[in-house]
């Protein structure tokens, strides 16, 4: 394999880890409540703006903006749950699309109204410069985002599968009524899931902002990637989202390099539909 090809694969893996990071929040609530959040991309966007604000107002880098964005978006998630999602869950599945699409427009254009339409970027040396390791060039900001992405998704996975809290949350997702009989409060668990999903999404946003541009409509671009990643991996499976994110990242990079950048999305979508053809529940979803 030529050195360039290795570089392409590495960049794909780093990208994939970031995809996994910003999809993990989506898969969590999707799996737990069977709710698809069409405003997810806009949650990421607000996380990015939080990072931009922290830098412009206080000069703070990721060490300040990551926890801040986690808190801001977690609060937003919990507020959305209590004010909106809790109510639309009573309606048909379509109500979720309706409600979260309305929320998406509201947040996206609320951001346009507040921050203006202009593209914002953080200084590219905020996280440190790129370095060369074994002939491969690594960009500081992307490495940080990728590593944190891996850590957060793994932590979420462990939390769901290895802790008492996690099994309580899963109990609610499988049968809320039965869980209630066992003394678990479904609403509290669901609100917690929205909070955790929000925190992961906020972290993702703050990290993406360090190497990406920030604008009110950036969430749209990211949302479709997140949807594909999550259903590719299987709803509710954090590990699935991680694997799917990495696969998509590498496939995108390789096909962009080998076939042509225009076709990279085409390849990803074909792969996605093909995977569903053979595994209708996604890579790691439960049948």
């Amino acid at each position: 394999m030529s050195m360039t090809l290795v570089q392409v694969v590495v960049s794909g893996l780093l990208l994939g880890a970031v995809y996994a990071l910003f999809s993990s929040g989506l898969t969590l609530i999707w799996g737990m409540m069977n709710v698809v959040n069409f405003a997810h991309g806009d949650f990421v966007m607000l996380g990015m703006y939080t990072a931009v604000m922290i830098w412009t107002a206080l000069g703070g880098g990721p060490w300040a903006s990551v926890p801040a964005a986690a808190m801001v978006i977690a609060t937003l998630g919990i507020a959305s749950y209590f004010l909106l999602v809790r109510h639309i869950m009573r309606g048909p599945m379509l109500a979720q699309i309706l409600g979260t699409f309305g929320l998406a427009l509201f947040l996206r254009y609320g951001a346009l109204w507040t921050f203006g339409a202009n593209f914002k970027t953080l200084p590219d040396d905020l996280v440190g410069h790129s370095f060369i390791l074994a002939g491969i060039r690594f960009e500081g900001a992307r490495v940080l985002a990728g590593v944190v992405g891996l850590l957060v998704t793994l932590l979420l996975h462990l939390l769901l599968t290895r802790t008492a809290l996690g099994s309580r949350m899963l109990a609610v997702s499988e049968d809320a009524t039965a869980a209630q009989l066992m003394g678990i409060r479904p609403q509290r668990m669901q609100a917690l899931a929205w909070g955790m999903a929000g925190a992961a999404t906020g972290i993702a946003g703050a990290l993406i902002a360090t190497f990406f541009y920030t604008s009110p409509t950036v969430g749209e671009t990211l949302a479709i990637v997140a949807f594909v990643t999550v259903s590719f991996g299987g709803f509710g499976s954090v590990l699935g989202a991680l694997v799917a994110g990495l696969v998509i990242g590498v496939v995108e990079s390789l096909s962009a390099y080998l076939i042509g950048p225009v076709y990279k999305d085409v390849i990803v979508y074909i792969l996605f539909v093909a995977v569903l053809w053979f595994r209708p529940q996604g890579l790691m979803g439960k049948a």
Binding site: L15, A256, P261, V262
Partner: peptide
Amino acid sequence: IAYSANSTDVQPQ
């Protein structure tokens, strides 16, 4: 090289 403007990564190009 044609690419889509909302690419998340342009390293391959």
